[in-house]
Lab assay of single mutants.
Amino acid sequence: QLNAMAHQIQEMFPQVPYHLVLQDLQLTRSVEITTDNILEGRIQVP
């Protein structure tokens, strides 16, 4: 299920590496919260 959620987020934010999306999802278990984390700059994109 997390993989499906990660792919959904990757479609919206292809610039964010998959492993970072998955790592955040493991903590949040939420597409909405992880999306917010990306938008708020809480996930550092190399």
Rank of each mutant, 00 (worst) to 15 (best):
Q1L: 13
Q1N: 15
Q1A: 11
Q1Y: 14
Q1E: 15
L2F: 11
L2P: 03
L2C: 08
L2K: 02
L2I: 12
L2T: 05
L2S: 04
N3P: 07
N3K: 14
N3F: 14
A4T: 09
M5Y: 09
A6V: 11
A6Y: 05
A6Q: 03
A6M: 08
A6K: 02
A6P: 00
A6I: 10
H7W: 13
H7E: 11
H7A: 15
Q8P: 02
Q8R: 13
Q8S: 09
Q8E: 10
Q8A: 13
I9L: 10
I9R: 01
I9F: 03
I9S: 00
I9Q: 00
Q10G: 09
Q10M: 15
Q10V: 14
Q10R: 11
Q10S: 13
Q10C: 12
E11A: 14
E11L: 15
E11K: 14
E11W: 07
E11H: 07
E11C: 09
M12W: 07
M12R: 14
M12I: 10
F13T: 01
F13G: 01
P14N: 05
P14K: 05
P14E: 03
P14T: 04
Q15C: 11
Q15S: 12
V16G: 01
V16I: 15
V16F: 11
V16H: 04
V16K: 01
V16P: 04
P17R: 03
P17Y: 04
P17K: 05
P17D: 07
Y18S: 05
Y18R: 05
Y18P: 05
Y18E: 04
H19C: 15
H19R: 08
H19D: 10
H19Y: 09
H19P: 06
L20R: 05
L20Q: 06
L20G: 02
L20N: 02
L20I: 09
V21R: 00
V21C: 04
V21H: 02
V21N: 01
V21L: 11
L22K: 04
L22Y: 10
L22A: 04
L22P: 00
L22W: 10
L22T: 03
Q23E: 13
Q23T: 08
Q23I: 11
D24Q: 03
D24P: 01
D24A: 03
D24G: 01
L25R: 00
L25N: 00
Q26C: 09
Q26Y: 14
Q26N: 07
Q26A: 13
L27C: 10
L27V: 12
L27H: 10
L27W: 10
L27T: 12
L27K: 13
L27P: 02
T28A: 01
T28N: 04
T28E: 03
T28G: 02
T28W: 06
T28M: 03
T28D: 04
T28H: 06
T28V: 01
T28K: 01
R29K: 14
R29N: 13
R29L: 15
R29Y: 10
S30D: 06
S30Y: 03
V31F: 09
V31L: 10
V31H: 06
V31W: 11
V31I: 13
V31Q: 07
V31M: 09
V31E: 06
E32H: 08
E32R: 12
E32Y: 10
E32S: 11
E32A: 11
E32I: 09
I33G: 08
I33M: 08
I33Y: 07
T34E: 00
T34R: 00
T34M: 00
T34A: 00
T34Q: 02
T34W: 02
T35E: 05
T35C: 13
T35R: 14
T35L: 13
T35H: 06
D36N: 15
D36V: 15
D36C: 14
D36Y: 14
D36S: 15
D36K: 15
D36P: 01
N37W: 02
N37K: 06
N37C: 02
N37T: 03
N37G: 03
N37V: 00
N37Y: 00
N37H: 08
I38H: 01
I38V: 05
I38Q: 00
I38Y: 03
L39H: 07
L39F: 05
L39P: 00
L39Q: 07
E40A: 15
E40P: 01
E40V: 09
E40I: 08
E40G: 12
E40T: 09
G41K: 06
G41A: 05
G41E: 04
G41R: 05
G41N: 08
G41L: 06
R42V: 05
R42P: 01
R42W: 07
R42I: 06
R42H: 08
I43P: 02
I43K: 02
I43A: 02
I43Q: 02
I43C: 03
I43T: 04
Q44C: 07
Q44P: 13
Q44D: 10
Q44M: 11
Q44E: 10
Q44T: 11
Q44W: 13
Q44R: 12
V45N: 11
V45I: 14
V45W: 14
P46G: 12
P46S: 12
P46M: 12
